[in-house]
Design a protein around this nucleic acid. Structure first.
Lengths: 202, 202
DNA sequence: TAACTACTTGACACCGAGTGCCATGTACGG
DNA sequence: CCGTACATGGCACTCGGTGTCAAGTAGTTA
């Protein structure tokens, strides 16, 4: 009854508050450590109330990790966009590479976020939760592409898991080297190792 | 200056309270769902105070997941006990198999615990945290066995990740089938898929 | 038996995360 | 100018988790 595709002012304001919040959170968390920062503190820094914080983010972890939510569907879409004739290892390699590229692009910010996540227990746990969801998504897409039954065949789940294992390893090296190592090269090396298992069809 | 290797009565009492607590927790959590049960409730059922609960378990999740803590060192030990000449896929297959067997043994209880963990978000997150730790342990052991540098070579981390991916898939099927499917057969099938990547040394 | 030590427990106060509720303010459409 | 829809802040409340202290109990020594 009312929603115009136009960007209303309320929406822009909402976006602004959201940015303000993530900005404040990221700075404080990286500076003082995850546990040493309260939500009241973050909210106050952003100039809003604690109650408002929770209208934008579901939890303290979410303010850092939220962007991972879309990444799962993004990966599935990336996989779906590959030609069906392509070898699974190539399709998955591309899928992982796209996600890594998304990180490496805005490397200044993304690198800091990733490092914060990987070194903070609570955040890492949320990251793993998301990754677990991605695996299901990728497995479903793989099963569909290959015409396999995901309930009997182990391959889709295993292949998705291997791809994400590679992703994890690459992300860890990349963050550990402060962004110095090349994500593309890392991805290729990782997939060179796991490919033999990915492509052993029959 | 006082600790005898004898089992003092205090220790037995302590063990008894611990059992009482896990028992109460498991029953209530499985019955009413993780979020619908408070710690006061669990403690009251076990006949102790909330404060005492936290003297035995670090968190609400821990009372269910605690036993996973040792499993990591157990897996590393299992891997370390394999002959060095053995192919990595065989060593890791055995490692995973041992852990699965530990579950399948006391299948009545273990099955219920695993099912509870896998279907509860908060518990699954803790499970993934532990698994993440296991991966580091396994990777370290693998690197040592193969004389690789874990900081440059991706193989140890990838191989450990693949093995745990297999473990995860097997566990999921086993729990999904209410223990009907054979863990050993499942493990073999999973490793048949990933083995080509594990053994492609050079 | 008395006294001293070590350990476990419960009660209480406290903090922080997260939620429900309600009153207020403010953009937008008629 | 008015009504609606929405964003916000304040407040009270629940629950997970921790620090502290006083009390109780088992085991030891004299």
């Amino acid at each position: 009854m009312s929603s115009r595709p136009e960007v209303t002012m309320a929406q822009r304001k909402r976006q602004l508050v959201s940015n303000e919040l993530s900005e404040a959170a990221l700075q404080l968390l990286a500076l003082k450590g995850f546990d040493a920062v309260t939500i009241d503190e973050i909210a106050a820094t952003a100039g809003v109330s604690k109650r408002t914080f929770f209208r934008y983010f579901a939890s303290k972890e979410d303010v850092v990790v939220q962007f991972l939510a879309d990444m799962g569907t993004g990966m599935r879409a990336a996989l779906a966009s590959r030609p069906i004739e392509e070898q699974p290892s190539a399709s998955l390699r591309h899928t992982v590479w796209v996600s890594m590229a998304a990180c490496a692009d805005h490397s200044d910010r993304a690198l800091r976020v990733v490092q914060l996540i990987l070194r903070t227990t609570a955040l890492r746990a949320r990251f793993l939760e998301h990754q677990d969801q991605w695996r299901d998504d990728l497995a479903a897409e793989l099963a569909q592409r290959l015409g396999l039954d995901a309930d009997t065949d182990l391959y889709p789940q295993l292949a998705a898991g291997m791809a994400l294992t590679a992703f994890d390893a690459v992300l860890q090296r990349w963050s550990g080297s402060d962004g110095a190592e090349d994500p593309a090269a890392l991805t290729d090396r990782a997939f060179a190792t796991i490919a033999p298992a990915l492509d052993s069809v029959e």
